[in-house]
Structures are given as C-alpha cells and as structure tokens.
Design a protein around this nucleic acid. Sequence first.
DNA 1: CGTATTCCCTGGGGGC
DNA 2: TGCCCCCAGGGAATAC
Length: 286
Amino acid sequence: MPELPEVETVRQGVARWVAGRRIATVEVHHPRAIRRHLPGAEHFATVLVGRTVLDACRRGKYLWLPLDSGDAIVGHLGMSGQLLVQPAEAPDETHLRVRFTFDDDGPQLRFVDQRTFGGLAVSEGGAALPAEIAHIARDPMDPEFSDADFLAGLRRRRTEVKRALLDQTLISGVGNIYADEALWRARLHGARQTDTLTGPAVGRLLGHVRDVLGEAIKVGGTSFDALYVNVNGESGYFDRALNVYGREGLPCTRCGTPIRREPFMNRSSHSCPRCQPRPRVLGRRS
DNA sequence: CGTATTCCCTGGGGGC
DNA sequence: TGCCCCCAGGGAATAC
C-alpha cells in the first residue's frame, strides 16, 4: 500500500538506476495500466522510444520522470503497483504491465501491478510538473509546504480531520495508514471536526505527520538492493513501527487499552478508545 | 460549489 | 478440500 514513504523510496531508486538512460523499447502488456494515456498503447510506446529519462520526481503519491523531449512519464502506483529495475533475464512477473528496455542493454524498468489501480501515462510538456497532477498539494515534507495555508484550509472546511488528511488537494502523501498513525500520536480522533482544532493542535498534528512519514522513509530505504527497486510495503517497518493500524484488539502501546477498528469510507480506521476519545456530539458519525 | 459516496480491481484469507 | 464472500484502498467520477 504505497503512501508517501514507499513512493519516495521508489523515486530514489528510479532516479539512481534509470536517470540518464535512453529508452529503446516499450511494451504494454495490459491496456488498463495506461488507461490515463488517452491516445492509447501504440502512441505511448512511439512517443517514448528514443527519449532519455532525466530524473525521477514526486508530488504526493504521484511520480513523474522528466524526459529530454520536455514531456514526462507520469505514474501512480495505486495500491499494488511496483516499479522494478530488473535484469533482462529475470522472468516476467505475473502482473507485469509495462516493460521499458534501454539502449545501454542494462536492466529493464518494469511496471508491475496486480490490481491495476495504478498506471502510467505520458504528460505532454510535463517535465517540470505534469498538468495532470498540478491539483495535488505539496506534501508536508516539502520545504515549500505552508503550515499556515494548511491551517487556513482546515478552517475553511466543514469536515472531519481524517478526511482532511486524506484530501490530496489539501495535503498530499498521507494515506489511511499514516493518517491513523499520526492521529494516534496526536491523541486525536479522526472524526473531530477540523474547525474545532486550535492552531497549536494543528501544528502538533503536522509535526506527528512529519515524524511518522520521516521515520517510514528512513526504513523504506533499506528495502533497496543493488539490482532492483523494491516497493514491498510489507517488509521492513510495517510490522515494527505501527501503533494502531492493523492492531485491532491489541493493547495500545501507550495505555494498554485494546485498539478499536471502525468503518470509514469503505475501509477502516484504527484508534485507541482511551487516548483518542470520540468527539462528543458534533461530528459524531452514526 | 463543497462535501460525501461510488466504483474500479484481484488475490489472500477466513468461514462454512 | 473447496467454495464463497469479505477485505485491502487512492482517487476520478458521480451524487448529493
């Protein structure tokens, strides 16, 4: 389940292993993987062959690879997507969707995605920032992220704080897992109305969001090895560092109260009933 | 217009 | 053992 730390790990790997290389061939193995590229698979391949990848960049959970043509490859991993750097002789992955080869005959770049929520597209003239993702807010690790603007955005809204954390046009990179973890650290229930939060409380919440993302990025870096970019969210920190996510019924690491799981937008929210009491009346969900 | 819900997709796992 | 249904979840599209 790639959120900001996983996508950042992938970005670093692609920048290291793919930047500076010229694309030789492009194979689209599943049309759904490029459904956002409206001109279709043939155009996708044609426009990319011969182009040199200059870098790997990230906005929230989106990646883009600027090309020497001024265009960019835009990608989203969805929830099961991986970008792997693999030697040509490595057997095809079961869910291999797109393969790039390079004219240096070095390792291939492969987009692998079991559930095809993710995808790739070419953004015309998108090398600096693809127009397709211009609506995505900066992430809280970005030096240009504005805490004041975020606070103002929360104040303008009539919604719950967890919904706000997941709104990528307000703050990007945070998904269900890290939202739950940051709210636990901040001792806030996700159903708190955003306009009931004080400025200092929002500041503390942002601090916890940054802490949890930063800690995860550090561990995510270890999932690399010399030959391939691994986007394996389960390995590494997942089991060790989580305090609430996936821990229903297990004791809160702070107070020992069993962690609760509640339905939330067709998924789940995890929290400590004692550290994160439900808001009183306003904002209570039936 | 702003906010909330729906839908896309597949394999692992639990219940029966 | 096998089948069926639930579950995971980002974000665009749609509904309210």
